[in-house]
Every structure is written in structure tokens, then in C-alpha cells.
Design a protein around this nucleic acid. Sequence first.
DNA 1: TAGTTCCGGAACTTTACAGTCTCGTTTATA
DNA 2: TATAAACGAGACTGTAAAGTTCCGGAACTA
Lengths: 229, 229
Amino acid sequence: MSEIKKKMSERGEISKVVSEKPAQTLGRKRDHTRDDKILEAAIDILVDTSFDGMTMDMVAARAKAGKATVYRRWSSKAELVRDALAWMNRNHLELESLPDTGTLREDLLVLLKPQSIAEEERKFRVLAGLGSFLQHPEFAEAGTAGIFEPWIVMNRELMNRAVVRGEIPAHADIEMACQVITSMASFRGLIQRKPFDKLFFTALIDGILLPALKNPQIAPNIMETLQDE
Amino acid sequence: MSEIKKKMSERGEISKVVSEKPAQTLGRKRDHTRDDKILEAAIDILVDTSFDGMTMDMVAARAKAGKATVYRRWSSKAELVRDALAWMNRNHLELESLPDTGTLREDLLVLLKPQSIAEEERKFRVLAGLGSFLQHPEFAEAGTAGIFEPWIVMNRELMNRAVVRGEIPAHADIEMACQVITSMASFRGLIQRKPFDKLFFTALIDGILLPALKNPQIAPNIMETLQDE
DNA sequence: TAGTTCCGGAACTTTACAGTCTCGTTTATA
DNA sequence: TATAAACGAGACTGTAAAGTTCCGGAACTA
């Protein structure tokens, strides 16, 4: 039985992010700068190994902390990883600083900064090793949505602006196009383990996305497709 | 340290599929019908748990076999899983039985039989739990290529036929379109854990793929996009 | 300055599982 | 019919890791 399953059957609920204690005033204060060190150490290790491959000793050693210090903050490995994922996905999502070059093509390309690529590849590697952890749906959300949602939001905004500019028709399937981007990125990073670099992204944009968005079907008749099941 | 890493550092090479023994003629013969029972049991378990979550006791119990019987065939868990993946991907890929309805749209839809969908979703669930196992590149190929390659081959063939028919231009980016299909399928099955059903696939085809394939860029000038890095 | 809680480090306990071995039985060869 | 290997079942061994506890020292409060 996997580690995570064991834990879940024993305790009922997942605790909130970094448990708070009942207003104590005595003794040395908890050094909350250690929290981030520990979470960062956990992510660093998850980049290179899997959930099951990561040990609490590794985390403590990498953070130069004692295991007691770790368990004082998180009561189990599952909770630590849960919070580490949330920490990894803490978002620098600034919608107001989105590129606005005048064409959708340039906007999309500018969004794909080399630094963003490296960061996303790190997240993919973490995600790839989460296996048994993600089998529990309550954890799956934290691990996945946080990674992909920001990109979908940004791409959606860029495409909507293109509609407003008249660059693409209003009835183009923007949601599907956004999903294509995140799907291709994750497939390439997660499965093929190749870089989602500018060359590939350009080919995707020019070969598929822009042609599709600029020449959508005249009458996307869903009803007709449903009847012939 | 994960199980797989331990094993790999000890032994050098991965053994071939179901090891053969040096021409012995004495005693009871090995019952090779047990091989498939064991591999099938392994896959059945991998569908519901992860690589680390699967135990050899589970496999033996599910196959109604003794652990000795399992270890007589595979010298480690890693090798068993390796062969189980190959067994799962043993392909009923019959290129000659591809649909040929006269339109690319119908061909693609016919290819997506409900039974195929269920089978692929099973494979996705296995793949999702492989985490630490796939971190070794020599295993990654067996696990992933076997799942996706057949679909790419079939979709490529259908699209090439469409080119021959004159349904889509010859310079459409067929390879990219094939990748979009497998990417979307795996993203939906692996990450979102939603069904890649006919409704969704139809929206992908009508909203993105067919428009893109039928209206490719006039001059897909890769050179121009490369210089502005 | 005494009492309390934190810290890093490390020893310790417990549990689970990979891999091995034994047993009684079955199926093969010579 | 004697020997040999495979079979299912399950006991056994060794190791790894989650989680706990203790240590000596530091930091805080009353």
C-alpha cells in the first residue's frame, strides 16, 4: 500500500496550511523563515525524485533543519507536500503586465519567456513524480490546477484582446485553443521530456493555433455531430 | 530513495523479456500460461495504485501464484513492471483496418471507438502512477512510446489520405496536428481526469484541427521567427 | 534568572515490503 | 518408479523510511 493511502485511512481531515497554535507567549518564538526553507527543500527534492522517493530525512537535511522542526510544522509527509505544492504555485500572476504588441502571435511568443519555460519545466518534473500522491483527488487539485490555470487565464486574455481588435472572429473556440497550449506544453515536458521551447511553440502557433483561430468553422453545429453516436 | 533507483545502482543491465533458461529437460515444465496471468495482474494493480504502491505480494495474490513463481520469471519488481508495460501495449494495430469514410472528420471520429477510449484511459491511469519508475529513461520509453505511438501512426495515415484526396493542402502541419490529438487526450486523461469522449473530441476536431489543416499558413517562414530570439 | 519553547542533530521504534527460502504437491523425464 | 523441476502458500530476513523522543544549546518572557 502506498504511503499516502496509509495516512489517509488513519486520519480524517487534512489540516490547513502551516498549523497555528493556541496563543502561547512563553519560550523561544518559532522561526517562520524556516517554513519557506523547508518547503523549498521539499520542492527541490521533488524535482529530482518522486513523492515516494523523497524522504523526510532528505528534506530536513537539505533545509539544514532537524526532523523535529519539520514535524512541529507539518504532522505528516502528505501535508508537507501538499503545502509545498501550494508554495511552488504561489503566483506571480500579474494580468496587468501582460504583453500587448498589437498582434496575437507576438503576444503569445513574448509570454513564453525563457525564464518562464525553465520554471514550468521544474513544475512538470515535480508533477511527474507525484504519482501515488495525486491518486487522492483532494490533493490532485492543489498539484495540477495551480500549475496550469494561470497560463490558461493569461492566454485567454490575450486571445480575447485579439477578438476585440478584430484579429480573430468572435466565434473562434478560444477555450479549446488555450487548452491546446497547456496540453502541448505538459505533454512535451511530462511525457516526451523535451523542451517546450520557442521553436516548437512557434510551430504550434503558426501551424495550428493561428490558422484555426482565424478561420473557424462557419457553423459549428454541435447538434449534428451528436446525433450520429 | 525510491525502489527503482536502489535496484538500478546494484545491477548493470536490464534483462530481456521473460528470461530463457539453458535448455533443461528434466522435471516439470514451466507453465507459460502463468506468465500472462502475472503480467495481467500487475497491470490491473497498476491501474489502481502507483509503482511504489504495488507490492509483489499483491501481484502474486491477484494472479493466484506464489511469489517464487513470479521471481522465477522476473528477477525484480522493475523488470516485471517493464514487461507488464510492454504486454499492456502489445498492439492490435491493424493499419489495414483503418476507417475510410471519405472525409477526414468522419475517419477521425470513427477511430475513436468507445472501447478504445476505455482502454486508453486504463493506460493513462497506469502511466500516471509510474512516477519513480519512469525517472529511469531506459524504462520511460517502454512506458510512454508504446501508448502514444500507435495513435500517432493511425492519425498520420488518415491525414495523409486526406491530403491525397485533396481534402487538405499538402503543406499543412500534419505532424503537429497528430501531436495535438495525443496531447489533448493525455492531458485530459492524465491531468484533468476527465473522459476524452466523442463530444470533446468533436469540439477539438471542428474547433481547431480541421480549420487549421484546411487553412494552413501561406508561407510558414521558420527563418523569420528564429532571428528574433 | 528560572521556566518554557524553539533550534539542529541524532538515536530510537515501528511498520512495510523486496527478495529468499521451505514445505507439501504436481508434473515431467529417464 | 526415482529424480528433478515447477507449482501455490506462506514463513523468514534485511533494509528503508515515517514518525517519535531525547539531547545540548539558544532565545524568549515573567
